[in-house]
Simulated assay, not measured.
Amino acid sequence: MSVIVLKRVYDISSPNDGCRVLVDRLWPRGLSKENAGLNEWEKDLAPSTELRLWFHHSFELWTEFSEKYRKELHEADLGRDFLKRHKDQEKITLLYAAKDEEHCHAIILKEYLETIK
């Protein structure tokens, strides 16, 4: 079973990151693909465009956003396939661009993936 950790995509990559997966729907501003150090980009694990635009990083909507995003993840059931494809990875680092590290969709995604392991 893989250990799943979170990290901002702008932070320096490390060999200890394991498999580095960008989980944002949009490419991070100001970051070249060469400097990102990604193993893959999983856009489909990110919130839908509609949900992302509705939330717009509004702290007041965090609880409702969390519920809606969990529902999207559950209904799409992409997490199971993602974990199956990465079953041999010791560590998976989910990368995100958000500045607010406490109200970021990657936190919800990590919790979701850990519940379906």
Rank of each mutant, 00 (worst) to 15 (best):
A106H: 03
E75K: 07
I116T: 07
N39V: 06
H57L: 13
L78D: 01
L95D: 05
K84H: 07
E101H: 13
D77A: 14
K68P: 00
Y96D: 00
T63M: 12
K71T: 04
S66Y: 01
T63V: 14
L78F: 08
I12D: 15
K84Y: 04
H56D: 15
I12C: 10
R8N: 05
K68V: 00
R70M: 07
L26R: 10
E90V: 02
H103G: 11
Y10M: 09
I92H: 09
A36E: 11
I92G: 08
A106Q: 01
F55N: 08
G30T: 09
Y96E: 02
K71G: 00
E34T: 11
K7G: 08
D81Y: 02
A76M: 03
C104T: 14
A98Y: 00
G79K: 12
E101N: 12
L109D: 03
N39I: 06
I116C: 03
H103W: 13
E72G: 02
K99S: 12
R52A: 03
E114Q: 15
D17R: 08
K91A: 04
D17W: 09
V3G: 11
P28N: 10
V9D: 06
D44N: 13
E111S: 11
D24S: 10
Y112I: 05
A98K: 04
Q89H: 03
G30S: 15
N39P: 08
E34M: 06
D88Y: 02
A97D: 05
H105G: 05
L61S: 07
K7M: 07
D100A: 11
I107S: 11
Y112K: 13
W54V: 07
F59P: 10
L61Y: 05
F65Q: 03
G79H: 12
K110S: 00
F55G: 05
A106D: 05
P15Y: 08
E42F: 09
L31R: 03
I92Q: 07
T49Y: 05
R20V: 06
M1L: 11
S58T: 06
K68H: 01
D81F: 02
Y10F: 14
L78K: 15
P47T: 07
